[in-house]
Design a protein around this nucleic acid. Structure first.
Lengths: 352, 352
DNA sequence: TACATGAAGGAAATCGATTTCTAAATTAGA
DNA sequence: TCTAATTTAGAAATCGATTTCCTTCATGTA
């Protein structure tokens, strides 16, 4: 007798019929366009709520050609910096009534290409991307612009692709970190870097070198080590140096994980941190706060970067309709915690 | 002279024209349907690649009524457990050629409702959700099923809503954690819990109590403290107990952040961990590995849970078309690290 | 009074892929 | 050889919201 089963989705036609007007007017009312009276608008809005109408994005996208959705692709969502960046982007999107789709590349080139594909198919209006470590070619980024989707690269970028760009000032940040070590009286400062091919790591190395040169410090060639971003590699490399003829009295590492490795190495070798050895890492991972001693690091203000990045879309692109590409740089801050402060002693509870 | 500007998107009609067949055949070819010959299929696929055709999901969604996309809503993406869960879901989606949209509620009810709204509008086929701490009502979850979207609740669930459910065995996990403390010779075990209204915390408390009762331990009423999941609150509560007449000799906390607070409190009070005080937390956050001493915790196998959860959709719902609701439980594991092992001593480098 | 102006609403085309139904062509079977 | 069965391909309707014209009607102005 009763045959409920599959009621169809409520559409603007249903609202139109219920209110007694044309579907086109309903659409205009819901979009708050000027060519429909306030009276009709309130009527439509009320009926929409009553019928529990849900806007069908697929239909609107198809017609409009835009989705009021932006996509972001990051290597990993559970890395402090990217989590912060996403938080910033999210906030801006929310304010501007846009949706956000988050994709992870997991540092894999293949997944990154897949993610780009997905976002293009989803018809997003803008893609924010930070490249995976594996990424060497950029055809997939060109795809994005070919499809008339706005492209904003952040942090891990490739300058060969024309796009809006927003980065951290890695050179300057590294310089400040090393400067800080020097100010604390360290002079034999070793460097644990990343891949030479990624600009972020290259710049951190340059910052390190310029601080070293400026202070006129003498650094043995073996103090400069690439490809040591992980805890284990860093631990091994640090131990090697501790056993060498001229061991360093401080480490600047391009990742906090490496800094942790150095800390473990120091502990197992019997060095006191910060008295015998200074350590400063990079990125301000959550755990830097809970080690003993706490780890100094460089704060990248990811949330801020995320906001600025999405602002490029909402302001520069959408509102001002500028044709030129934005190119922004965010300054970082040194978080001097226990592991690098032997003059200006800090304790765990009062750090930062 | 040259007028590139805005070439239109390549559609199946373009392919159809180029190959010399009907658009409907192109669609069938691209979807690998049986009613079109192999010859045509290869022809179409080649031409599609050549023209750089991109499937328009909005159009397909609109027509099909489904999007081959699933949505997941979590309180936070940068919490170890949820990051793992997402990784698991992602893998399964990838294997099944579905897209994944990730949303964060940031533990806010309002944002959670917003996220649900977004996903309904995006026409996702299935929503996986873990509720925010603020969530008390569930009308928004009913919305999901009203729109004929499959609903799977995981971890932080509300049993009042009919849906597929997959949870961790929190009771059992807590029981095992406390049991472990008892086995290590602790007997005055305090409990730092969460909100009584969230099942996960309620269950952890029950597990704690059952282990205590089973061992016939005498626990003063003030050892059982709710709403202490954060580092600072835990630190304060722990200190209070240390100063009391009958201080505990161990803590079981429902979060690793709380465990960290206890550790800090112990340090500032001058207690040695694990000798004077045993500590075990919950969730196996990344930082538990790097504190001194390392923190024992409960591993929840989030990735596994994520896989099982999405399997419910791909297997139980899609393939088997079962009408009943799945109800799964995942077992957790105690990670006994330094902070709780005074009999079976562990060192930082050999843990786990 | 006659005309211009503008506001408010509607009809119909459109976005691009899918799907149903039909027709043609091929193969098999008797 | 002729009919039935089976492939293969195409025509056309469809999904739901948006948008571009129009039309109508009210208001203001000369």
């Amino acid at each position: 007798m009763n045959r409920p089963i599959k009621e169809k989705r409520v559409t603007i036609h249903d609202i139109a019929k219920a209110v007694g007007i044309a579907p086109s007017s309903v659409s205009k009312a819901l979009n708050d366009l000027p060519s429909v009276s306030e009276k009709v608008k309130t009527l439509v809005r009320a009926k929409a709520r009553e019928l529990n109408y849900k806007h069908n994005l697929s239909a609107a996208n198809l017609r409009r050609g835009s989705s009021r959705t932006i996509g972001v692709i990051v290597p990993r969502v559970n890395v402090a910096f990217f989590a912060d960046t996403i938080a910033g982007i999210e906030e801006t999107c929310f304010e501007n009534n846009h949706r956000l789709i988050i994709c992870q590349s997991n540092e894999s080139f293949e997944k990154e290409v897949q993610a780009v594909e997905t976002l293009i198919q989803q018809n997003v209006d803008c893609i924010l991307i930070s490249l995976s470590q594996e990424t060497q070619t950029v055809d997939h980024l060109r795809e994005i612009t070919n499809h008339h989707i706005h492209l904003i690269q952040f942090d891990r970028i490739n300058p060969d692709v024309e796009s809006h760009i927003i980065v951290n000032d890695n050179r300057q940040a590294a310089y400040k970190a090393v400067r800080h070590l020097i100010d604390e009286g360290y002079s034999r400062i070793a460097f644990l870097g990343g891949s030479e091919y990624l600009p972020i790591y290259k710049h951190r190395k340059e910052g390190y070198l310029s601080a070293i040169r400026e202070a006129d410090l003498d650094i043995p060639y073996n103090y400069i080590i690439n490809n040591a971003v992980k805890t284990e590699t860093a631990l091994a490399k640090a131990l090697e140096l501790f056993y060498s003829k001229h061991p360093p009295d401080a480490f600047f590492t391009v990742s906090d994980f490496a800094a942790l490795g150095v800390l473990k190495a120091a502990r197992s070798f019997g060095l006191r941190v910060p008295d015998d050895l200074g350590i400063i890492g990079f990125s301000n991972e959550a755990f830097t706060d809970v080690t003993t001693p706490t780890l100094s690091s460089v704060i990248q203000w990811g949330k801020n970067l995320g906001k600025e990045a999405s602002d490029i879309y909402f302001n520069t692109i959408l509102k001002e309709k500028k044709q030129t590409f934005a190119h922004l740089t965010i300054e970082s801050t040194v978080a001097a915690r226990e592991s690098s402060c032997r003059k200006t002693k800090k304790t765990a509870l009062e750090t930062d």
